[in-house]
Simulated scan of single mutants.
Amino acid sequence: MATLAGIFLPDGLPAHFAALLIAASFATSFITASVGIGGGAAMIALMSYFVPPAALIPVHGAVQLGSNGGRTIVLRDYVDWTRVAAFSAGALFGAAIGAAIAVRLQSGIILMVLGAFIVATTWVPLRRIAAMKTRGFAAIGAITTFLGMFLGATGPLNAALLSNSFPVRQKLVGSLAALMSVQHGFKVIGFAVVGFAFAPWLPLIALMIASGFGGTLAGSKLLNTMPEKGFRLAFKLALTLLAAGMIFRGVKTFYWN
């Protein structure tokens, strides 16, 4: 007789690994809800040890769609919906191109360049980015969604480019959550269109989304009590750590693969 784990989990994924991913979804959602960034990148790094490469980015995208969607609901009063709409138009274009190509790019050099760019935009004031117009959100939506079809978590890049456009921490976290919901939503649709089979993964995805929503509720409470300066410093440090990880992975891929 098939076990419950065999029925509800994809082939080859042990129950204790699934339990770890579900717990990690709570922790990583707590991180993103409280400091604005970091959870998605941490989640894909952990999932890479347990989820087959062909399923990693589609499944991660579905989990992050649910996680960011929950955070958008919790912080909906702070979301800049006009900018989200502009970002969405660009994201649709980027996802369509990425899905049409439907190949995994050699990402080593790309990771190194993006990591260095994130560090620069995090610590060096850039007036043009700080004064980003609505049409700029459309361009960023197209570029980062396209990259997300191959690199997985592009939250740090969106955050680095757009963080100065939202001077209040709740607006930043809420609007980034809405932007990433759109981006992951188009990513999931794109992978479904090119034939990825989500069905075997749906029970695990649902449990990870539910766990992540709990992390979002807990992290949002910390966000509302954190001083603005403390939040901004934690946000920059988290972005820098993520960028350093991207650079390291790029160097490793470029020189050792």
Rank of each mutant, 00 (worst) to 15 (best):
T3S: 09
T3R: 02
L4P: 03
L4S: 04
F8T: 10
G12P: 11
G12Y: 06
L13K: 08
P14I: 01
A15P: 12
A18Y: 13
A19Y: 01
A24L: 10
F26I: 14
F26Y: 13
A27W: 12
A27E: 12
T28C: 11
T28L: 09
I31A: 06
S34K: 08
V35F: 09
V35P: 12
G39Y: 06
G39F: 04
A41E: 14
A41Q: 07
A41H: 04
M43R: 02
I44H: 05
M47P: 12
V51W: 03
V51E: 03
L56V: 15
P58N: 02
P58Y: 01
P58C: 04
P58V: 03
G61Q: 04
A62D: 06
V63Y: 06
N68D: 15
R71A: 09
V74I: 15
L75Y: 13
D77P: 04
D77K: 11
Y78R: 06
V79Q: 02
V79T: 05
W81F: 15
R83K: 13
S88G: 13
A89H: 00
A89K: 00
G90V: 00
G98I: 00
A100H: 03
I101Q: 02
V103A: 06
Q106E: 15
Q106M: 06
G108N: 07
I110E: 13
M112I: 14
M112E: 10
L114S: 08
A116M: 07
V119W: 13
A120S: 12
A120M: 09
T122N: 10
W123R: 05
A130S: 11
A130W: 01
A130R: 08
M132Y: 01
K133G: 11
K133E: 11
F137A: 01
F137S: 00
A138C: 08
I140F: 01
I140T: 04
I143Y: 01
I143K: 00
T144Q: 07
T145P: 02
M149Q: 03
G152K: 02
A153I: 05
A153V: 10
T154P: 08
T154A: 06
T154W: 02
A160V: 04
L162W: 01
P167A: 03
Q170K: 07
L172E: 06
V173W: 10
G174M: 01
S175T: 14
S175W: 00
S175L: 01
L176W: 00
L176P: 03
L176V: 03
A178T: 05
M180Q: 14
V182S: 10
H184L: 02
G185Y: 03
F186L: 11
A192I: 08
A192D: 14
V193L: 14
V194F: 01
V194I: 12
G195C: 03
F196T: 13
A197T: 15
F198K: 04
F198H: 07
A199E: 15
L202M: 10
P203Q: 08
I205R: 06
I205N: 09
I205A: 09
I209A: 13
I209H: 05
F213I: 12
F213A: 05
T216V: 15
T216M: 12
L217S: 03
L217W: 09
L217H: 12
A218N: 11
G219K: 11
N224Q: 05
M226W: 05
E228T: 10
F231D: 09
F231N: 07
L233A: 15
K236A: 05
A238Y: 08
L241A: 09
M246I: 07
I247M: 11
F248I: 10
V251G: 05
V251C: 07
F254T: 15
F254M: 10
Y255V: 07
